[in-house]
Design a protein around this nucleic acid. Sequence first.
DNA 1: GAGCACTGC
Length: 709
Amino acid sequence: MSSTGSILVKDQKRGRKVHPFERSESKVVEFVENLPNDEDELENQRLGRNELKRRANELLRVRKTFPVHQNKEEIMKYIRENQVAILIGETGSGKSTQIPQFVLDDLYASGTRGAIAVTQPRRVAAINLATRVAQEYGCNVGEQVGYSVRFDNATSSKTRLKYLTDGMLLRELMMHRDLKEYSVVVIDEAHERTVLTDLILGFLKSLIDGPRPDLKIIVMSATLQAEKFSSFFHNAPILFVEGRKFSVDQYYLGHACEDVVDSMVRCCCQINQGEQMGDILCFLPGQEEIDKAVAIMNKIAPCIADTTAVPLMVALPLYAALPPAQQALVFSPVKGFKRKIVFSTNIAETSVTISGVKFVIDSGLRKVKVWRHQLGLATLLTVPISRASAMQRTGRAGRESEGKCFRLYREADYNQLPQQTEPEIARSDVTSPVLMLKRYDIDDIVNWTWFENPGKEALVLALQQLYELQALDDAGKITSRGKQMALLPLPPQMSSVLIHAHEIKCLSPAIDIVACLSVDNFLLNPPPELRDEVNERRLALCSAGKKHGDLIMMKELFDFASQINTPRERLEWCKQLCVSHRAYKNIAKIKQQLTNYCKHLFKQEQDELTLDTNTNITRVIKCFLSGFAKNTAIRMPDRSYRTVLTGEPISIHPSSLLFLNTHCPAIMYTEYVFTAKGYARNVTRLELTWLQEIAGLGAVAKQTITSNE
DNA sequence: GAGCACTGC
């Protein structure tokens, strides 16, 4: 047992109050809530007209209880009379399901042509909303009401109300630049400020000020930022819609928190001892803290339950990298005299909803990836959350009844937090967005209608990167190569790899590897006790990967998995090699999609090159080098690596197959992240001569290479 | 010899 654990048990036995919380002076929070989700109703079967109508009538009673329904006429008056309307409503208001239906009725009533698009940041949300609204509307999904997300399109010529991811709407913007198909576009969850929603807002503004003066826009957001949306759209009117509210009391820590995991475990014990039944949701910044908290909890909980008459605490982790089966555990209720405690990352803040939660404990921290444009490097930082985020986390305690939120920081700390989370676009690589704008023939990128301008430095470096990838010409206009890159559903570097692969006739293996790199966590981290064993197995299986590195190994593993006939055997094989089966299936889908795009793009049948010989492997690696020339490093005499571009020290990430291999003269990597130090991920071995062949590399880099030979 | 939050085409 860890020392933290034993101290805690002692404290519990003495019955000492371990956590000096103070009752907050501040106002009770009004929290937000998602729509109830009838799992049974999510079935995908086609129903007859009468049955559909009957069900829709049943649902109408429920719909009429929504606050938006009671204010329907007033809301619709605003929407009819204004080209742009900003709708602020908490998530229990039913705005995402009801408003689009009101608008649809209006379209039919007024005989207006065109459809309604409702964007969502996430795929599941788009699918669930469309399914729900189709039922309310009394049709099957894909008829009048449908959805469109990557790999799944449920729309038809009948569809007038379409829920789609914002990535999908951007794609439609690239293809049909005026969005002629739509008379109304609704941007939902705009407050989340994803890069893609921000881009859509910019495009919509240029549309209504230009070729689409008739287009109606509704921006829907949960609380705050209303003025920013309003002033962006020429002071559009703002409407507030009430949500369903349960109160959540907030408590703060009386002193600064020293060890967040320790404090959180103590707080759980205190709730377990002193509060009524109800599950606890704990927000921690990352996997490391979560695994630690779960381990401590599961050690001490049985002792505490044995010695005192309190519920047995059952601790469960939740983060995106967790296998689906383990993720599913947090959704099933615990039976008996037990209390479920979920330790989660930000995933439970917006993406995932757990029922039964009555208490929230908030560490006030999150992990954030910040892009350093100059270095072409991502840093991963643990930072304090914003006040908006704290409110959102708090709201998770009161979805079903009144709840309590314990914040592991002082009220004074809370008051110092920034109002809003910094929008993603301000800390991201904007190469891909800039390529989109260029594809849209925007000449002046810096003065475009940005909802949030990412800044001149970011834009200039993105333009430079695109120029180096030959997506732009000397005049800064998009080239035909750039147009091809913009069409592929990939980051520009990866698109560049595929175009080059086509040129030197090794498209098929390149697609496989790009597909592997497009999913997260194809290779899982083996648990420490199995690590050596799994590594051995992988190395034994992947002879080419052993020599050339991670990219080639992924290709080998993907090929092996594809050759297995039954899903059951494949699942077992994945387990043996600690490979994600879910990721494998996604790779197969992406491979299919990329293959289709390439056939269309290059107007040819798939080539037949395989990865049999060494020359082909070299060729494939050189394709990647064409997209990732900047992501290379050279081995120094002391065996460390330094980046070719800036001479920064860089280490091969321990998750790489080449981690132990000290014999690479040079390396290429698809990702450069800074945590404790600079790490190269997805590493491939290079020969120095290959680096010298790269035209785009600067003279300094070449000098380094030569002097090192 | 270390350990990456989340999402999208």
